[in-house]
Amino acid sequence: MLKRLAAMAAGMMLVLTAGAAMAQTVSTPTPSNNGDAGIMFDVTATNAVTVTGLANQFNTAIPQTVNIYTRPGTHVGFSSASTGWSLVGTTSLTGTGAVQSIPVVLSEPIAAGQTKGFYIAAAGIGYRNGTAVGAVAASDANIQILEGTGKSAPDFSATNNTPRVLVGSVTYSAGPAPVPTLSEWAMILFGLALAGGAALYIQRRRMTA
């Protein structure tokens, strides 16, 4: 009985994950030729995407706090104050002098034709000198990573240095943030019913043992 329930639950999970979008990553040129304590940049979506992760070069070989902020639209004109920005992730890592994935899972949707600003704030990061704020630093069929603004300290009031380019990557899934369909909700409810049935079965076995 329990083996049958487990098999049915496994089948449910396969159905739920079968339509999951595959993650894709766009990387900017490496290595850094400059650096300081923060990088602001924009991501423009050619097609609807959901940004799920970021990577950056970290140079400081001591544990450091990394904060990730986002804002709707461009960061240009909004780089010196926190108004309109949202803190979407905080973590700690030790720099290796190379590009490192930031261990924060994001879910930041960008509609087709829209732009979202990102700010990675940390004590010691690497970035590159650019050509012009807003120029395309890297792209694929779905997103463009634009040249942005370096910060001299990991806060909004710090000095802006432009143009500066992210040395790292943006990971995304194609399409908006996933929302369960009606059929997926039915499977979720079915899974909950299975779990409840299993618990009741185990309880009755214990009572009759």
Rank of each mutant, 00 (worst) to 15 (best):
residue 24 Q to W: 00
residue 29 P to E: 01
residue 87 L to K: 01
residue 100 Q to R: 03
residue 91 T to G: 02
residue 45 A to D: 15
residue 12 M to Y: 09
residue 53 G to T: 11
residue 171 T to Y: 14
residue 186 A to R: 06
residue 169 S to T: 07
residue 62 I to D: 12
residue 109 P to F: 13
residue 71 R to W: 05
residue 127 Y to D: 07
residue 103 P to C: 09
residue 84 G to V: 08
residue 21 A to W: 05
residue 77 G to W: 08
residue 39 I to G: 12
residue 135 A to C: 13
residue 172 Y to T: 07
residue 192 L to C: 10
residue 166 L to A: 15
residue 71 R to A: 01
residue 174 A to Y: 13
residue 173 S to K: 07
residue 13 M to I: 11
residue 30 T to S: 12
residue 154 P to R: 01
residue 69 Y to C: 11
residue 114 Q to T: 13
residue 170 V to G: 14
residue 201 Y to H: 11
residue 180 P to D: 12
residue 157 S to Q: 10
residue 190 F to W: 05
residue 112 A to F: 14
residue 125 I to G: 09
residue 51 V to K: 04
residue 150 G to I: 02
residue 195 A to E: 11
residue 22 M to E: 05
residue 168 G to M: 06
residue 192 L to D: 10
residue 22 M to I: 04
residue 146 L to Q: 03
residue 48 A to K: 02
residue 2 L to S: 07
residue 143 I to P: 04
residue 70 T to S: 09
residue 21 A to L: 04
residue 11 G to A: 02
residue 80 S to W: 03
residue 78 F to W: 02
residue 29 P to N: 01
residue 197 G to W: 05
residue 24 Q to G: 09
residue 25 T to I: 15
residue 60 T to I: 13
residue 110 I to Q: 06
residue 28 T to M: 03
residue 162 T to K: 07
residue 171 T to K: 14
residue 201 Y to N: 14
residue 37 A to F: 13
residue 176 P to Q: 10
